[in-house]
Design a protein around this nucleic acid. Structure first.
Length: 548
RNA sequence: GCGCCCAUAGCUCAGUUGGAUAGAGCGUUGGACUACGAAUCCAAAGGUCAGAGGUUCGAAUCCUCUUGGGCGCACCA
């Protein structure tokens, strides 16, 4: 709705600018949300023209303002402001009409058509089943699933996918670790692998195996049955944890299948045919340096095993082959370099890498009692994602992970997330929604009839309420921007903004205890806010409670 | 040593792709419930946007350097 408005003004400006100034060179008209008192929408286009035309920006802006007699529908004013802004105001009648549309079709709020008819794939988490998910995985899980939701809102048909390695060295180490613990239980001599997994969950799995099979696997010389058992148990645990965050994958893609269907061999052959590989020290290397990468990379070890990079490349080739218009890789910052290797390789293979977008996220630090909790590695000391959810709950967990843009380190304050109070931003937003529901509850109990949405019923909306109405459409605009930029944190900030506006309005204005006309208009407005809040929260997969 | 990410209020962070007087939340201080939910609201204080140069009408934003942090730089994933 509102983005239609933006486009309309953009087209109008472009036409006027061409008529009046006849500039040479492309126009790129940007819009921003101006400061208080400068209207609803601002464009700095006159600044850009100033360079081209060698005229003071304010003069350009004023000459465009002079054209404002026939503004497109939806706008009521266009003004030049020093040092050269053009500020536009929305036509209140138009906004009221837009609200009526939202109330008549709430299911269409925040739905766009940028991606309609297109297919997107979002790959995230992709943790190997060697242990419980960490809070780092949690950030990625929440980020990835929110991005998937946003892309769906853009109209894409989205596949959420989890890629896991069930073939490599790490899984072997897992099996060996479990086997060693199992033999320990039996009192047999066992050598625990040097780089084995030391968490208590390994002992727990060994104990389960002992309960099922007693000493039946004592003579088992290989790690394989232990690996299989462990993989299954750990994977179930991972899925259970993800489910607690409301995440369900459409596809779990096993690396193993890339070996089975020959994808890996094919990639190897093609790269070899293109002369991109060479042998050294018994290993097979990719000439990554020739393509701007810092180092050449081993694809096949001297042992004959492939390194993870080769299957990764095969996987991406496979994904591109599935015909997705957009492929999003959500990765931790530690995968940055290997991701670049993969992209480099598939580009060299002649694939269209413009369809791939990589979202890197920085790490998470847990903070408790004002102190940082170590989140590290294989030792038994870290806090698992499951334990974090135990402590703060699903909603706070998701909301806090989205509170920062992916690029910045995230300090997750456990104490703050647990607080059921004013300091906690999750409750701030949820409370706004619960309050709105509460108004309708009270209205119902008092026998106040809900008015039908109509432009007449909204006539009394004025300076007190119009900012709220604009915020509804600003949220919608933000949803689209967040989706296009793959930045869910923008939604969080827009939600906090709209919740703040509502709380302030609520404590300064009566809704039910107003004259009927004002009451009805406010009820409809607040209903619209409810639609907006629900939509925003649901895209983040955070619940919008009716009572708290 | 090299590459990537980052440095904004006491703390944690936004900042709409280079624009108006740099904004929130928390914390601090002081106010507001005889009310549709005080899990809220109102107000105040708080800044050399790490530092130094550069690019231009204009820089938190782009370029270079310096300082300080995170992550990488495996024949692990």
């Amino acid at each position: 709705m509102i983005q239609g408005l933006y486009k309309r003004l953009e087209a109008w400006l472009e036409r006027r600018i061409l008529e009046v100034f006849k500039p040479s060179g492309a126009l790129d008209i940007a819009f921003e949300r101006p400061k208080e008192g400068f209207g609803d929408l601002a464009t700095p286009v006159a600044f850009q023209l100033a360079r081209l035309l060698r005229m003071p920006p304010i003069e350009i802006a004023e000459r465009l303002e002079a054209q404002a007699a026939d503004l497109p529908e939806g706008f009521s004013a266009l003004r030049a402001a020093p040092p050269g802004y053009l500020n536009a105001e929305f036509d209140p009648e138009f906004l009221k009409n837009a609200l009526v549309e939202v109330l008549e079709h709430p299911e269409l709020f925040g739905m766009f058509d940028d991606g309609s008819g297109k297919r997107a794939q979002v790959e995230f988490v992709s943790a190997n089943p060697t242990g419980p998910l960490t809070v780092g995985h949690g950030r990625q899980a929440v980020l990835g699933s929110s991005i998937a939701n946003l892309l769906e809102a853009l109209g894409y048909e989205v596949t959420q996918e989890y890629y896991y390695n069930d073939a490599g060295r790490q899984m072997r180490v897992l099996g060996e670790s479990i086997r060693a613990r199992y033999l320990e239980i039996l009192g047999e001599p066992a050598s625990f692998p040097e780089d084995g997994y030391q968490g208590d969950y390994i002992r727990e799995i060994a104990r389960q195996i002992f309960e099922h099979f007693a000493d039946g696997l004592k003579a088992e010389a290989t790690h394989e049955p232990f690996q299989k058992y462990g993989e299954r148990v750990i994977f179930e645990d991972i899925q259970r944890t993800l489910q607690r965050l409301g995440i369900r994958f459409d596809v779990y893609f096993s690396e193993h299948t890339l070996y089975e269907d020959g994808s890996i061999e094919r990639v190897l052959e093609r790269m070899s045919a293109l002369g991109l590989l060479y042998e050294k020290d018994g290993a097979l290397w990719f000439k990554a340096q020739e393509f701007g990468q810092p180092k050449d990379r081993v694809f096949r070890k001297a042992s004959g095993e492939y390194t993870y990079r080769l299957p990764d490349i095969a996987y991406h080739v496979q994904k591109l082959g599935r015909g997705f218009d957009l492929i999003v890789d959500v990765l931790g910052a530690d995968h940055h370099l290997s991701s670049q290797d993969v992209i480099t390789a598939i580009k060299v293979l002649g694939q269209d890498v413009s369809r791939i977008r990589v979202v890197l996220h920085q790490f998470v630090t847990l903070v408790k009692g004002g102190e940082r909790v170590k989140v590290s590695t294989r030792k038994a000391t870290y806090v698992t994602l499951d334990e974090l959810i135990d402590m703060v709950g699903k909603d706070a967990c998701r909301f806090f992970f989205l509170l920062r843009k992916a690029d910045t380190h995230l300090d997750f304050d456990i104490d703050l997330a647990r607080k059921q109070g004013e300091e906690n931003p999750v409750y701030y937003v949820q409370y706004a929604h619960a309050r709105i529901c509460s108004v309708f509850e009270v209205a119902k109990n008092r026998g106040v009839a809900m008015p039908n949405p109509s432009i007449e019923a909204l006539q009394t909306l004025n300076e007190a309420e119009l900012p709220l109405l604009k915020a509804v459409f600003w949220l919608e605009h933000t949803l689209r921007e967040a989706a296009r930029e793959l930045e869910p944190h923008r939604v969080v900030y827009a939600l906090m903004d709209i919740a703040g506006l509502f709380h302030s309005f609520y404590s300064h204005n009566r809704i039910l205890e107003s004259p009927e006309e004002i009451r009805n208009a406010r009820l409809l407005l607040v209903q619209g806010l409810g639609v907006a809040l629900r939509r925003g929260l649901s895209l983040l997969n955070v619940t919008a409670p009716e009572k708290m």
